[in-house]
């Protein structure tokens, strides 16, 4: 039998009860609104739409064979693959630049973070005018002698979406990078300079390796935030977008309107599984990096 540790490590039953009481409202809500119904969601993904009859993997097959699902999943994957690296690069550059300015960087920091607070709905009209066929951007292009682009009716919509997403979310990642940069001890730079390292060498041999744990974190958070890209898609194109920006949330909305519970539950479980598969190994990597 283990001996009780001395001093303040002794667990007092009264305090433990207090902890559970503090947790109670939050836990109860999570169980009622998320955990219990999630179990029900998993169960219903294996039954018919009414939840009365076991149908095995039928719902999952039906999801996989669905054209719209393939389109939405493909677009979402494509968006993740293009957007996350771009977002990481842009926000890192902004963070490095803002930091290089030291006191003067404050105003820029505010400016880059501000779009985060701008409600998507409030700038919808401006975006429509910007990217319409006879819109502001095309007007500028034509005056420069360039062919106008049909932004909303072609695959260009995808790039408008990427641009909008970067515009709105770079600030958030920039703050995360800045926190990571602040965590690098000055002594490392001094040591590198003593060894004769220049600015670029300092960056590649000190800054980048030291940012590795931050990179993992920023990637996970950016990846998860991109699932919210529906807002930007809705801003750019309303409920009926060009097929290049038809995202999972559009599909889920459609299935929801027709109350297609079979497919909806199966697809929700699939998204959860894919996220777990992506995020858990990344977290392992992070934990590993921390122990170094």
């Amino acid at each position: 039998m283990k001996k009780m540790a001395a001093g303040h490590c002794v667990r007092k039953p009264q305090r433990e009860w207090a902890a559970y009481l503090f947790l109670l409202p939050s836990m109860a809500g999570l169980i009622v609104f998320l955990l219990a119904p999630f179990a029900e969601t998993v169960r219903r993904s294996f039954t018919n739409a009414l939840g009365t009859q076991w149908v095995g993997l039928y719902n999952y097959q039906s999801v996989f064979h669905n054209e719209a699902f393939r389109l939405a999943a493909g677009n979402t994957a494509r968006f993740l693959c293009v957007c996350v690296p771009l977002l990481l690069a842009v926000s890192l550059i902004l963070a490095l630049a803002v930091r290089a300015l030291k006191p003067g960087g404050r105003a820029f920091k505010t400016a880059y973070l501000l779009p985060m607070a701008v409600p998507v709905a409030s700038i919808a009209l401006l975006w429509q005018v910007l990217f319409a066929e006879k819109g502001l951007v095309n007007g500028r292009l034509v005056s420069l002698g360039v062919q106008p682009v049909d932004f909303m009716g072609t695959g260009a919509a995808f790039w408008v979406l990427i641009g909008t997403y970067l515009w709105k979310n770079s600030g958030y990642d920039m703050i995360l990078w800045l926190a990571g940069l602040d965590g690098i001890p000055d002594s490392l730079y001094e040591a590198a300079r003593v060894d004769g390292a220049g600015r670029l060498q300092c960056f590649f041999h000190v800054t980048l390796p030291q940012l590795a744990p931050t990179l993992g974190l920023v990637s996970v958070l950016s990846l998860l935030n991109t699932f919210k890209v529906f807002r930007e898609a809705y801003l750019v194109a309303g409920s009926y977008p060009h097929e290049s920006i038809y995202m999972l949330q559009h599909l889920f909305n459609n299935w929801f309107l027709s109350l297609d519970m079979g497919r909806l539950t199966a697809a929700a479980v699939l998204v959860a599984l894919v996220l777990l598969v992506i995020v858990l190994p990344l977290q392992r990597v992070l934990k590993g990096a921390e122990q170094l």
Partner: peptide, 8 residues
């Protein structure tokens, strides 16, 4: 993400 929580 909301895609997962909306059904529950």
């Amino acid at each position: 993400p909301f895609q997962v929580t909306m059904v529950p």
